[in-house]
Design a protein around this nucleic acid. Structure first.
Lengths: 412, 412
DNA sequence: TTCTTTTTCTCCGAGACACAAATTAAATCT
DNA sequence: AGATTTAATTTGTGTCTCGGAGAAAAAGAA
């Protein structure tokens, strides 16, 4: 329990200032003062300290000669070079590594096509280590410049402990990637559920910027769930990230894990025979099979679209349950191929609409978002940057400072 | 967004002090200092202010002449008469009203047997008003002594707005009980989901004292869900309390609301024909029918126990889903009659065990708790008292101050 | 009893902070 | 150049926590 003392006070207010600058671009001191509701005096003191630490820098170029009469505002922005972080995403068939600066701009990224599930955890750690070192080097940096690394992967992750309890892409359990990579790379390394990374990326950089409550449902080989609640990433009691795939979708009897009904992997199994029919090539690669399925569905093949619809319905069932619990104004369905197909999404929407009680019928907006590797890397970066910004409590961003991104100054 | 200033600092620390006293009985200043990790100076200043406000009082009776040599400790405790609050619970067939003091002790309570669903909201408000006034009077108090009232009822409640969006015991929707009762009684009135009240009662006074994460599943006529997460009552995005009854238990097809499968009301409908069989009396009253069902099941009637088991399994399905999301160390199943029956609970436990993924198999302890009217009233009281304690952030109690209830002093 | 010891509590001053008011800085307008 | 306007900083005041010195209140020792 942290008792409140002047230091905490300063830490909180410093975070507000940093957060305002991060979110609303270059800002002058007056603007910060208005946004944060801190007095100009305090803002001046805090920005002075931040400038001193080189976390922010003045934007000198005359920039917006903003029609002003008096002394011009000095715009302040994050110092991109204040720190650099590395982000890693482990997917079943690929390791993605990236390096970003303090603003979350991706300086360099690297994709290693590796069938992860065939490797031991220690081999994967080798590959990650090499990938990070290479990526850092390619960005013209030295490991000494890197402030932290975050690894995202699907499954049940205990962030605080730095351990992956269980993952569909790992054979082993309780893999301590955190400590391992910290030791290998000589920088603080954290791990988290991959969906949490997209969730944070959406919150910091994406469609849910400034939104304090939303869900991210990630559909790829496996299923993931990210929850932002009250501006904070939601984690279970022990810091365990919730795993959507483990949710059960059918009560006793023909029970089924959601991952076995609605993930890309399960859909492919379901559709395998179907696809084999018209195809000369007997062996279908993962990606190709899915593409084929989607193409056929789009072309009007009822049986193919039926498979997708079943998956969408199953997921919609789960999403409806989550909406009754969290009542989020926005639900983001993210993924690569399948998630963006209408043959999947429409049944999902319909299922949600059918299952939701009337009182919650219109609270949630379901939107679809195709991600690329950059999102993951930015998410991983944000996860690490959050610490550097000095948030004194476990938040990814406090209550929205104001409704409009930048209200006209002057009045108020 | 509240900026940090000295005032907030003081508010936070004052809350820590109050919370320590509330939780660990009469305490001396040194003990408070050790528990809260605040300096003795600060504790002295804060307690002086609290004594000044008469929120706490010294416990003069020589009490534990605690084998000491030096200046004896002055034990401080909450002043029971610092404030009084009223709590109200609306159930389908009864209105329960109670008045407690600042310590949560129930001074007086009153149960009005009313079939609420036959009345309009305004009649109910009349009854509540009269009940509160009577109860306050019977406790030897005047409405002027009452600092606040909290009403609990099943359904979807938007606490912040003081509105009950929808409730199984009300015909009307969007009933603004909060503003209405504030106006009628002339004191601040809040409303909340009834389960939230038991949840808070368990956290403050009951089995989950000091536990920061647990679920309460309340089984009576309808189903309720209370979630304590990170020491705070969990609410959906708009402050909406989640409603377990609205959760869907079966995916598309023979879909069903959980409330239609696992609540007492649904079980009775299911079992109606069954019960009528051997019974001369054609019309069975609610409570009697349930008692009869339980008795027959206990006597070995397979068909009756089957009905209960089906309900237990359906609820178990939902609980398993909640455990995968929240990973709470404890799940409390509370209720009056049905919830405590083994014919209901064992199937529930089994369903949970069967549906939970291996990685979460042992995280949650499911316990059963029979409540009485007092629990509700205490919960409602706690809900109001929380504000009086001056918690500056929306918590029901911060991180546990220390593991043991009261560690031996002296060393440190 | 009277003095010493021990423990609890309070007063005092230092240091950190937020903030309001006054002051300085740096531009445009006349 | 001087007036005007807006931005940022300096100065002064009050609040807070906290360490250390001192006062209070008991038990034990002489």
């Amino acid at each position: 329990m942290k008792t409140a003392d002047p230091e905490l006070m300063r830490a909180i207010n410093r975070f507000y200032v940093m957060d305002a600058i991060r979110r609303f671009g270059p800002l002058s001191r007056v603007e910060i003062s208005q946004l944060t509701e801190l007095s100009p005096t305090t803002v001046s003191a805090i920005t002075a300290a931040l400038l001193d630490d080189r976390l922010i820098i003045p934007l000198q170029l005359g920039a917006v000669r903003d029609a002003g009469r008096g002394r011009p505002r000095v715009m302040l922005k994050l110092n991109p070079d204040a720190a650099h972080v590395a982000g890693v995403k482990l997917a079943h068939d690929q390791i993605t590594v990236g390096v970003t600066n303090f603003c979350g701009d991706i300086l360099r990224s690297l994709a290693l096509p590796v069938r992860i599930d065939r490797q031991t955890a220690s081999v994967i750690a080798d590959l990650v280590e090499d990938g990070v070192r290479r990526c850092v080097g390619d960005a013209g940096l030295d490991m000494a410049h890197i402030s932290g690394v975050c690894v995202g992967l699907p499954g049940v992750v205990e962030r605080a402990a730095g351990v992956c309890r269980q993952s569909p892409i790992l054979q082993e359990r309780d893999v301590p990637f955190g400590a391992d990579l910290s030791h290998r790379l000589g920088v603080p390394a954290s791990i988290d559920s991959d969906v949490n990374l997209v969730t944070l990326a959406e919150h910091w950089f994406g469609q849910a910027r400034g939104l304090n409550d939303f869900l991210v449902v990630n559909v790829e080989r496996s299923l993931g769930l990210g929850i932002l609640h009250n501006g904070e990433l939601f984690r279970g009691a022990n810091g365990l990230s919730p795993d959507l795939g483990d949710l059960m979708v059918r009560p006793s009897g023909g029970g089924g894990r959601l991952a076995d009904l609605a993930s890309e992997a399960s859909v492919l199994i379901e559709a395998e025979a179907l696809l084999r029919e018209g195809e000369a090539d007997a062996r279908l690669h993962q990606g190709r099979a899915l593409a084929l399925l989607l193409k056929r569905a789009a072309a009007g093949d009822k049986r193919c679209s039926r498979v997708l619809a079943a998956a969408g319905e199953a997921l919609g069932f789960a999403v409806a349950g989550l909406i009754t619990l969290f009542a989020p104004p926005k639900v983001i369905v993210s993924g690569r191929a399948m998630a963006t197909s209408d043959h999947f999404i429409e049944p999902l929407r319909n299922a949600v609409a059918a299952l939701l009680p009337a009182s919650l019928a219109d609270v949630s907006d379901i939107i679809v978002r195709e991600w690329n590797d950059g999102n993951w890397v930015q998410g991983a970066a944000a996860m690490t940057l959050r610490d550097l910004y000095g948030a004194p409590w476990g938040t990814t961003g406090p209550a929205p400072i104001r409704e409009a991104p930048l209200p006209p100054l002057g009045e108020s």
